[in-house]
């Protein structure tokens, strides 16, 4: 008896937390298969008939399909570039001695403190001058630039763990700096690279503000922008169903990603920040 009471006490708080997380998601899902008229007039009822039409209109009419493809392109290219470029810098900062090392290290550290908001207006004007507004290339470049600081410092921690003797041995074997980096170092810090990629995936896939500033053309909008767009359009029409379907469509990919990489995400997040 005591034991059961104890168990209840242990679980009750967490059960409440879990309900708060799960119920909203279920609510969105139920509404997404309801006809639009029922959503406003009979909000809590179950759908009178299950209707996937909302998904069709969210995917094609509201442009979520376009946003999905754009997000996929932008995110994947950005991640590859971020991880690769950051690893190069982290390797040098961790293993080499040279003249402006402190300066470079400090200026990247500065990037961790600079809020994106500070430079909102000038960044937009700069991109506009470079003809990179409303361009996926522009968005990729900005994402890469703004993710470097964070990724470099995660990776430095991993490079620091690689014993110097390994590099020395490789050099004695006649490896040049590029071979050392590619053949010796990268395989050794692979877990770090994967963690960095996963984290940047979540950050960039969900990114909203930079995209909001830099992309206004409907055909270039990423998923979060298109989603916010549905809310805009919905104000001028009466298609509430598409809003909910759009929400489900934007939740599904990250959820799948989460289920696959759950361990690494959770454990990686803690590892990164404690070491950093």
């Amino acid at each position: 008896m005591m034991k059961i009471l104890n168990q209840i006490r242990q679980h009750i708080f967490l059960v409440i937390v879990s309900i708060l997380v799960i119920i909203p998601v279920i609510w969105v899902f139920v509404n997404s298969v309801k006809p639009s008229s029922e959503i406003l007039l009979a909000p809590l009822s179950f759908p009178s008939k299950i209707d996937f039409g909302n998904y069709v209109s969210a995917w094609s009419d509201a442009g979520l399909g376009v946003g999905f493809v754009n997000s996929l392109i932008v995110t994947s290219i950005s991640i590859i570039l971020i991880v690769f470029l950051s690893a190069m810098v982290a390797f040098v900062l961790s293993k080499k001695q040279f003249r402006f090392k402190k300066t470079i290290q400090l200026s990247f550290l500065l990037g961790l403190m600079l809020p994106t908001f500070l430079a909102m207006a000038p960044l937009f004007l700069l991109m506009n001058k470079l003809d990179l507004v409303n361009s996926l290339v522009g968005l990729v470049l900005v994402y890469v630039a703004y993710s470097l600081s964070f990724t470099i410092f995660i990776l430095i921690a991993f490079f620091n763990q690689v014993p110097d003797s390994l590099e020395e041995a490789a050099v004695i074997d006649g490896c040049g700096p590029f071979r050392v980096f590619w053949n010796v170092m990268l395989p050794l810090v692979k877990p770090g690279l994967i963690s960095a990629a996963i984290f940047n995936f979540v950050g960039i896939w969900n990114e909203y503000i930079l995209a909001l500033i830099l992309i206004s053309d409907d055909s270039m909008k990423t998923l979060p922008l298109q989603l916010a767009n549905i809310m805009m359009i919905q104000q001028y029409h009466t298609d509430w169903g598409a809003l909910y379907a759009g929400l489900v469509l934007s939740i599904i990919p990250v959820t799948i990603f989460f289920l696959i990489f759950q361990r690494r995400l959770i454990e990686g997040s803690t590892a990164g920040s404690i070491k950093g």
């Binding site: 470079i104 200026s107 500065l110 990037g111 430079a119 000038p122 700069l126 470049l141 630039a145 470097l148």
Partner: peptide, 13 residues
């Protein structure tokens, strides 16, 4: 990395 960083992060700031 440095070029990207200085162009898109430091310069606008």
């Amino acid at each position: 990395a440095t070029v990207l960083y200085f162009l898109f992060v430091i310069y606008p700031s």
